[in-house]
Computed example of a mutant assay.
Amino acid sequence: MEEKSVFESFELEVKDEIKGYLSEISKWSYFLSIMGFIGVGLMVLAGIFVGFFSGLNNLAGSSNTLYNLGYSMGIGLFYIVLGLIYLFPVLYLFRFSKRVKSALKLNSNEDFRIAFLNLKSHYKFMGIFVIVIISIYVLILIGAMGTAFFN
């Protein structure tokens, strides 16, 4: 005999009050995603600017031109890569916002499902990103302590 999960027989009821909350959430998430797209664009432009123009400036008047050029290009590339990494959670948030608006307007369960799939992806990406950043900080701390200990 199969045992049914509690959630198999449970149907979620979305009342007008909750629809109002979701409508407000979609507006704020849309705003934040647009700000995120602008931020990503500025990061990429800053990376291009730092990599290209600082590299040209270093070529003009320094004795260590290749080192400075590589350093400038590395910093520029770092900004571009960070911008592209940050593009994914912003895109998930934007898709969530658009799908919630569509689900509320059309009363579509499929749009509602896809909206929350994108929200799940947004939070999953951000959670993994935070874990990676904390891990990098821990490794840097261990390396710094090891360097200090052995010097």
Rank of each mutant, 00 (worst) to 15 (best):
M1N: 04
M1L: 10
M1V: 11
E2T: 10
E2R: 06
K4T: 05
S5G: 11
S5C: 10
E8V: 01
S9I: 02
E11P: 00
E13S: 05
V14G: 05
E17I: 12
I18H: 13
I18N: 03
I18W: 06
I18E: 15
S23H: 13
E24Y: 07
K27S: 12
S29R: 03
Y30Q: 08
F31H: 01
S33H: 00
I34Q: 09
I34A: 10
I34T: 12
M35L: 12
M35T: 01
G36Q: 07
F37D: 10
I38Y: 03
I38E: 09
V40I: 12
V40L: 09
M43K: 09
F49Q: 08
F49D: 10
F49W: 14
V50G: 03
F53C: 03
S54H: 04
L56C: 14
N58T: 14
L59A: 15
L59F: 12
L59R: 10
A60L: 13
N64Y: 15
N64G: 11
N64H: 11
T65E: 14
Y67N: 03
L69I: 14
Y71D: 15
S72H: 01
M73I: 15
G76R: 05
L77A: 15
F78V: 13
Y79L: 14
Y86A: 09
L87I: 07
F88V: 12
F88N: 07
F88Y: 14
P89D: 02
Y92R: 00
L93P: 01
R95T: 01
F96Y: 14
K98M: 06
L106A: 11
L106S: 07
F112S: 04
F112C: 04
R113A: 14
R113W: 06
R113N: 12
F116P: 01
L117T: 08
L117D: 03
N118K: 05
N118C: 04
L119W: 11
L119Q: 10
K120A: 14
S121Y: 08
S121C: 06
K124Y: 09
M126L: 15
G127F: 10
I131Q: 00
V132W: 03
I134S: 04
I134G: 00
I136Q: 03
Y137D: 15
Y137W: 12
V138E: 01
I140M: 08
I140Y: 06
I142M: 07
I142F: 12
G143P: 08
G143V: 13
A144Q: 08
G146Q: 08
T147Y: 15
A148S: 14
